[in-house]
Design a protein around this nucleic acid. Structure first.
Lengths: 146, 146
DNA sequence: TTCTCGTTTTAGAATGATTCTTGATCTTGT
DNA sequence: ACAAGATCAAGAATCATTCTAAAACGAGAA
């Protein structure tokens, strides 16, 4: 996948960042982070929980929420919001948008072609700190099979 | 505000559209629609409910939800999603994005400068049916007063 | 007009994601 | 090892939204 540092570097980044945020490196957090890196399909907290239990049966949903919150707080993971659906989590730190296929429900990362400055006509005096772009439609696979 | 047909025309549009969707023109629906047209500050369902009760004290929250759903279904009103905050409602049918001021909480309509085709680098075979763009930052007033 | 039937309204219960609370359990620094 | 603080787990609480069931309503037929 384009724009991705490799897994080893992601783990180094984890070590540095988790401590920079004054957070402990706990097994639960690392497990949650590894799951996100290992399957970059934008899971919800509940989906992360179900996957996490396979290798760590005692983990609780609350801990998954706490771990995800910690990872988001120190910038290792981003939240993805699509309408008011459950929040999804994405370890891709490059600037990008998201595309949801209305047929299969999969979420894809989408490259954004230009910088924020030229993209919108903001009134004078407005400053942007974050943006979120979400598209809906039909993915290539579902277009082909319909 | 730029890009707005006048209120009279919006009401004509209401008459035509509500029937085109095989929906009845009920006092509750018209009242909800009038509120949205009269104060275009992107209220949530609960905010619409509080305003609606002033002129129609017997209206229920469920009816406000139903009315908003009907207006959205026939295309008179659009939903606005900002993160996972409560859904907001917007009668501006022009293509536009939204800007939330993190200081004062107000939501502003934002012009989008280019057509969808050139804006994103979609993989081949992907087709977009809807998009939603939301920005966060500081508005002009709050930048000035800080 | 009156009847009829499908639509709408209403109040309250139910749902579901997320957050909060509380006590138990680890970690780190001394 | 000990104290202080962070984290974990289980369940309760919150809040937007949807669902349910029954009463009220409206447009068209008789």
């Amino acid at each position: 996948m384009a724009g991705w540092r490799n897994v080893k570097n992601n783990h180094d980044h984890y070590d540095a960042t988790i401590r920079g945020g004054a957070l402990r490196d706990t097994p639960q957090r690392r497990h949650v982070y590894d799951l996100l890196l290992g399957n970059r399909d934008h899971p919800t907290a509940t989906e992360v929980f179900m996957r996490a239990k396979k290798a760590m049966p005692s983990i609780s949903l609350a801990t998954v929420y706490n771990s995800l919150e910690a990872l988001v707080a120190c910038g290792l993971v981003k939240q993805v919001h699509i309408d008011r659906e459950p929040t999804r989590f994405c370890p891709n730190l490059e600037e990008h948008g998201h595309f949801v296929c209305e047929k299969c429900g999969r979420v894809f990362d989408i490259e954004i072609s230009q910088g924020p400055a030229t993209r919108w006509k903001l009134p004078k005096g407005f400053t942007v700190t974050h943006h979120e772009i979400s598209l809906r439609g039909t993915c290539a696979d579902c277009t082909k099979n319909s």
